[in-house]
Amino acid sequence: MAGSGVTQMREDDDIVLSVKNLVMEFKVGRDEIVHAVSDVSFDVKKGETLGIVGESGCGKSTTARSIVQLPKPTSGSVMVDSEDGPIELSGLKGDALRKIRPKLQMIFQDPISSLNPRRIVREVVKEGLAIWPNGMSEQQIQDRVDEILESVGIDPEIAATRRAHEFSGGQCQRISIARAVALDPEILICDEPVSALDVSVQAQILNLLEEMKEKYGLTLLFISHDLSVVRNVSDRVVVMYLGKICEIGSSDTIYSLPAHPYTRVLLASAPEPASTVSESESAIGDDIPSPINPPTGCRFRTRCPSAQALCEEKEPEMQKVGDDHFVACHFPVIDR
């Protein structure tokens, strides 16, 4: 898996976010380096939902964080579409970066920690507009906050007097969505937005995200470890493992014709395995290699059922295996 390459990048005027050769490394201890994200490239079209799925440590959240430059990636490019054409984020600093920030908003996994416990919820939602009034009058700002609160299903009156801890987890996540959407962003990055919620609340939030996407013309980057959730919300899916992309393609293709051995393992391991793979395919080792010393060649080879000598020597490049379907594997499963 562990694939590099940029064949999967599309040529299109509608691309709003394009991430190319993104690398994120952290220093730990004296001279050890964590290779959290290694050479990841993908792009997102306007109005599209791109799902990123993978297990813990695969670099999906780090990817999200480095797109918003928190912290800045070690190398690679993050291009965001703007009125004056695409802007390279990784080169921006200080005020220039701040000015572009409203375009890219984010919601996080922990609904409680995402909201300042000492601030009134209405103020939290208003914060973006307080920073960037863009010529709006105070009244217009207030109206906009009311409108957004209502659209996420929070009563503005209640929000005007209460703080976050007085709301349930699901409601807090609605408030986070309202805060992010208030600035009318181009792209909304959702980092495990429903993982901390009860199953009975999860669908409410997923439905709300779809609604908001429609209403405010958002493009979503949806990150989750939950395969079923990712399939449900995404148009396109990226499967990541140990800092690399394994497979990328349209959501239904990835789930119905998984070509990468790791994707197949994931699908077979789900509590209710996908019908396209046999359950026995979930039988792989439990030991995920350390991102400090990732395996040579293909990073998945240590656990891969179809690994061969070549996988150790050479890192697989992204290759096209179907219509909008790209795989980084020397021996992809293609049965069509």
């Binding site: 918003v68 922990d110 995402s114 909201l115 920073i131 805060r179 600035l183």
Partner: peptide, 21 residues
Amino acid sequence: REFVAAARILGSTNRRIMIKE
């Protein structure tokens, strides 16, 4: 805490984050 990251993503200045958050 993530609300500080959220404030940064909204485009808050350091000063504003320190005072408000």
